[in-house]
Each structure stands twice: as C-alpha cells, then as structure tokens.
Amino acid sequence: MNSFIRFLSSSIGRKYVMAVTGLSLTLFLLVHMAGNLTLYAGNDAFNEYADLLESNPLLPLAEAGLLVLFVVHILFAVLLTGRNKTSRSDKYQSSLGMGAKTVASTTMWITGPVLLVFLVIHIWDFRISKELLDEYDLAQMVVDRLRHPVGFVIYTASIGMVGLHMWHAFQSAFQTLGVAHPRYRSLIQNTGRLITALLVAGFGGIPFYLFFTG
C-alpha cells in the first residue's frame, strides 16, 4: 500500500489531516472576518470590498480550495468521531472525569455538525442566492438578514459555536502536529485564545451593531 494512503488510514494521519485543514480554515476565518469589518464603514465600503474580491480571476480557485478544506475536514471528523464513539460499548455507570476536559473539548463533535448546518444556511444566503438574482446589493442583503430577529439569533449563536469550537481546536491542532515543547505551550494556548476572541468579537460584533442601530 502506498505510504500516503497508509498514513491517511491511521489514527495519527487522520488527526494530522484534521489539524492541517483546521488551521487553514482558521486562517480563512481571520481573512473573512477582516473583510466583514468593512461593514462598519458603511454599505458602500462593504460592497466595494465584495466587488474587489469577485473581480479577482483567482476567486474560483480559492473557492474550490475552501470547499476541499471544508469537505476533507468534515469527512475526517466523521471518520475519527465514528471510531471514538464506538470504542467503549459498555459505558461507565459513574460519571467519568479527571477534570482536565473542558466544555469546548467535549462538544467538538456537537459544535462541528451545528456549524455545518450554519455553513449551509450561510452559503445559501450570501453565495448561492445571489447567483439567482440579476441585480443585488450584497451589503443590504447582509443588513436585512441580521436585522431580522431569526437571522440575528442564528448568526450570533453560530458565532458562539465558532468560538467554542476554536477554543479547543487551536492548541489541539498544534499538539496533534507534534508542536508541544513546554516552552511554547502557553504561547500556543494564548495565541489560540486571542484568535478565538478576535473571531468572536469581529464576526459577532456586526450583528449587534446592525441590530441595535437599525
């Protein structure tokens, strides 16, 4: 068997894939969030930024890359989680716990699927539906969505899920990749927390700004 296929069939290889795709998606989220911040400068600034992105001939390539990242991340999560949920058929009768696990670490398999549902809604709202329109004002679409109570609740709750997912994910990815020198442990952990806070504040601030100023 090809050594690459063997790697991808192993527990550690699959974890590597989760870590690499996860960190790549984190980078994407940071760029995405930075772009969203143009909304604070008004609808026109946001639309200008969107036009700039869409006029880039490399955009389809980037979108295809993103799709691959998401699909691979989800697929390997299903493979790994499936195994993890079947490795202990007879459950403990007492509540098992040493106090090291966190709400974030134990809910990765829940926040993940919830985020997938959000992702589908999100892509329909702001990527696919505009393809069906002859003319559209993307910024206005965003504003309308987030000022609607249902849209506001779904969006803010989903950003909360991103935060919970990321809280565990960042340091976990580095541990999986084998970067765990005691000297860098707190640096990695704090960087992860900072990125999580940035993402939650950056993405999450916009719906509040729109909802309460609208």
């Binding site: 699959r14 974890k15 999986t176």
Partner: peptide, 29 residues
C-alpha cells in the same frame, strides 16, 4: 483516537506527560 482532552495525563498514576503524544505524532509522520 486522541482528541486532546488530556484526561489521561490527569489520571496517570505516574504523571506521564501528553508531550509524549506530540512526540509520537511527530515520530509517526
């Protein structure tokens, strides 16, 4: 598969560190 909860390290009667798991991941790659 390990999902990095680190419950193992907390439960280990000999205090084996999870940095060993990171090393094993590197070694395997």
């Amino acid at each position: 598969n390990c999902t990095n909860h680190y419950e193992c390290e907390a439960a280990c009667p000999k205090g084996i560190s999870v940095t060993n798991i990171a090393r094993m991941n590197r070694e395997y790659a």
